[in-house]
Amino acid sequence: MNIRNVSLILNRELKSYFSSLTVYIVILMFLLMTGYFFYNLLATFSVVSYQAQTDPMLAKQYQLLNINETVIRPLFGSISIILLLMTPLLTMRLFAEEKKTGTIELLLTFPINDVDVVLGKYLACLVVLLTMVLLTATYPILLVVLGEPEVVPIATGYLGLVLLGAAALSLGIFTSSLTENQIVSASMSFGMLFFFWLISYSVPLVSAGLGQLLSYLSINEHIESMSKGVVDSTDIIYYLCFIALFLFLTLRSLETKRWR
């Protein structure tokens, strides 16, 4: 690995991302969707809070007066799903476009290692992801200004979102390396991400041991505890392994291109 080469690729990819409209539209749509969820959650919260003034039992019954539980946690849940929808759109072009236009031929004959190429491209989409996720921080900041939510679960929740997004990106970059068609790449990442997301739905149907395994494999299970403020090393290890695995597969897929 050569840091200079990684940063050269990273810079080029970032310029390429931000010089096209696509990224701005993806970020805009992401913020509109998450903003809509935030608005609804907050509106519900304020209506319930208002009604609870006259009917204290209502709030107690539904435990609705904790802003962390009623607004922030569900918000993280929604953002995580929207993230899974949006990341394939960020990653689909990374290799597919280079293959389509043929620039991959020059890229792979430059004197740089494949690792540098993969890492540079991965870090570039990670920067875009961080931009997207951090822009949503306006919602919790609004809550901190207006109310008194617990800050720690917000911070750990964001850690979870970033890890989840980073994992999704690693899968996306892998599917992009498999094809020269961006739509195919995006469809494959959608499919695989949904598989990793819904895999926990089968838990009740299978034996306990297998169920545990399936829920461990599920990509969404691991942000649950983080959005409650608990950082468990197994969750972090899960995401890091996921990322490492798919970056490794991307590298392999580039190498097999050299063989074909």
């Binding site: 310029k15 043929g102 991959i104 031929e105 020059l106």
Partner: peptide
């Protein structure tokens, strides 16, 4: 040690 010009001259159009 090589410089290569591929056939269709693939370049990064956005640069």
């Amino acid at each position: 040690r090589i410089g290569y010009l591929p056939q269709r001259v693939p370049l990064y159009e956005d640069m």
